[in-house]
């Protein structure tokens, strides 16, 4: 009888211990993530995100102005939309534009707005470098980094909720909350930067997105190596708001290795990039 009791006790212990033991760390993390997954965005939440992103985008354009070259705008849009075909947010219509500044940087506004500075493009040498930067910015949008940080959604509980109500004439405090949130988003872009884990996620996402689209993901590494030597004001904001280049380069290389990406087999499209740049005034 005692033996049976011991056997039953052991079996009960096994039932608790074994499921975790047989799962890898990745599987455990995945299960934890799935069980802790927040409710998905509603259509109204997406609309709210786009409306918020428009305000941020209007400020970005207001700060730098748009580069006027049609050829460059078209080329950046073609590269951007090629990547967008592999986005996990088909509900968004992405917009791509070049900001008229010598500053070396790129910016994303919620809802699908992606901006590359002319200064950044001037430092690039092939299309995969441009794709890498766009995919990184797309990662911030698709990861909803600003949206989560500032709790932008349509529900009543959100601090920045119901922009539609503001349009129709909301309360002064609601207007203030919304405008303050846009200020915070601008501060993230120009002063404080995204959370470190968000930057890591965007870098990793860039590698995977470039690879699935057929671009050499090492383009972003080459670009970082080149701009890491740039001195002066052109990289001031970028340096202030992002992790160190050497740290990011190590992470990018690791991601490429772990995913077993044969970078040599993927495209840099150097010729196409060079040709496109010839047409830019």
């Amino acid at each position: 009888m005692r033996m049976i009791s011991v056997l039953a006790f052991l079996l009960m212990l096994m039932s608790i211990a074994v499921p975790d033991a047989v799962m890898s760390a990745d599987e455990q993390a995945w299960r934890q993530r799935v069980s802790a997954a927040p409710p998905e965005m509603t259509s109204d939440d997406v609309s709210e995100e786009i409306r918020f992103g428009r305000e941020v985008a209007a400020r970005l354009i207001g700060r730098f102005g748009l580069h006027t070259s049609d050829q460059l705008t078209k080329y950046v849009n073609l590269v951007g939309h090629s990547l967008a075909a592999y986005s996990n947010r088909p509900e968004l219509k992405y917009h791509f534009a070049v900001l008229n500044t010598s500053e070396i940087n790129a910016y994303a506004a919620p809802g699908g707005y992606i901006f590359i500075t002319k200064g950044a493009i001037d430092r690039m040498q092939d299309e995969s470098e441009l794709a890498g930067v766009i995919a990184h910015e797309m990662g911030h949008i698709n990861g909803k980094h600003v949206v989560k940080e500032l709790d932008i959604k349509a529900s009543e509980g959100s601090a920045v909720s119901g922009l539609a109500r503001l349009i129709g004439g909301g309360t002064e405090s609601a207007r203030l909350a919304f405008s303050k949130a846009v200020d915070q988003a601008m501060d993230t872009l120009f002063k404080t930067g995204y959370k470190r884990e968000d930057e890591i996620q965007a870098d990793k996402g860039s590698v995977m997105q470039c690879a699935v689209a057929g671009y050499d993901p090492a383009g972003l590494i080459r670009y970082f190596e080149r701009i890491s030597t740039a001195k002066g004001k052109s990289t001031e904001v970028l340096d202030k708001t992002h992790p160190a280049y050497d740290t990011r380069i190590i992470l990018l290389k690791d991601t490429i290795t772990v995913a077993a990406i044969d970078t040599a087999a993927l495209k840099t499209h150097k010729d196409r990039f060079t040709e496109a740049m010839k047409t830019v005034k």
């Binding site: 207001g62 748009l66 073609l78 090629s82 075909a85 917009h95 299309e127 601008m186 057929g214 671009y215």
Partner: peptide
């Protein structure tokens, strides 16, 4: 921090046609 809604409208209205995009993607084996 001035707002440029005219610029935003230009960005939002800019499109590349499906045919252009397909040609670009196929040409680049994307």
């Amino acid at each position: 921090d001035k707002l440029d809604y005219d610029g935003l409208e230009r960005v939002e209205k800019y499109t590349v046609s499906d045919a252009e995009l397909t040609k670009f993607m196929e040409g680049g084996k994307i």
